[in-house]
Amino acid sequence: MGQWAYKVVYVDYRGRISCEGVETLIGNNERRSAFVRRYFDSIGREGWELSSNQPLTANSAYYVFKRPAQDGDYADQPAATQETPTTPPPTTSTEGPTIESV
């Protein structure tokens, strides 16, 4: 099964779209539906397909788009690294754990 890349878009139907730190504002005298359609058409041309949406209020929602992963889709994400200690941490007590009985 192939890997997917995802894009989360916040839409405020009063005239603002936010995605990955980029704000898009409604044009002068542009209808709200035309504004959102214009934005969705632009990312659709890049291969993004609507996967789901989550309404937040009567005027806003999150939309999740996906497409098959391409080179560079994950370039902005740091690689996950886990540090493995080479020596165990020093202990200050020579006693074992305290066990309480009821």
Rank of each mutant, 00 (worst) to 15 (best):
D41N: 14
R67V: 10
E20W: 01
Y63V: 00
E83P: 00
G21Q: 10
T84A: 07
A34K: 10
D73T: 11
G21C: 03
Y6N: 11
A80K: 06
R45N: 12
G96R: 04
Y13I: 08
W4M: 13
R38Q: 04
F65V: 04
N28S: 04
T86D: 08
E83Q: 11
I99R: 06
E100F: 09
T86E: 06
V8Y: 10
V8I: 14
L50C: 15
Q3K: 14
Y74D: 13
E46R: 12
R38K: 05
W4I: 01
Y39G: 03
Y6D: 10
D73N: 09
Q54A: 08
P85H: 02
A61W: 02
Y13H: 12
M1N: 08
V8K: 13
R14F: 09
Q54F: 13
E23M: 08
R32H: 06
Q77W: 02
I17H: 11
Y74K: 12
P55A: 03
A69E: 04
A75R: 09
R16D: 10
N28L: 14
R67H: 12
A5Y: 03
S18P: 00
A58G: 04
C19K: 07
R45T: 14
P78S: 03
E83W: 08
Q77C: 08
P55Y: 05
A58L: 10
T92G: 01
R37E: 15
G27R: 15
P89K: 11
S51T: 12
E20G: 02
E100D: 07
F65I: 09
A79V: 06
I99W: 10
S18C: 11
R67D: 12
L56Y: 00
R32Q: 10
D41E: 14
W48L: 07
T91N: 01
C19A: 13
P90R: 15
I17A: 09
Y10F: 14
Q70H: 08
S51M: 01
A69R: 07
E46D: 10
G21D: 02
D41R: 09
G44T: 03
E20H: 05
D73W: 04
T87F: 12
T24K: 07
Y74S: 14
I99Q: 12
V36G: 04
T24F: 01
E46P: 05
R14T: 15
R31P: 04
K7Q: 13
K7L: 15
I99P: 03
P68H: 04
W4E: 11
A69W: 00
R45C: 08
A79K: 04
A80N: 05
E30Y: 03
V102Y: 09
P97M: 02
L50Y: 08
N59S: 11
F65E: 09
S101H: 10
E46F: 06
Y39T: 03
T94I: 01
N28E: 15
T98D: 10
G96S: 11
I99V: 12
G72I: 01
Y10C: 00
S60E: 00
R32V: 14
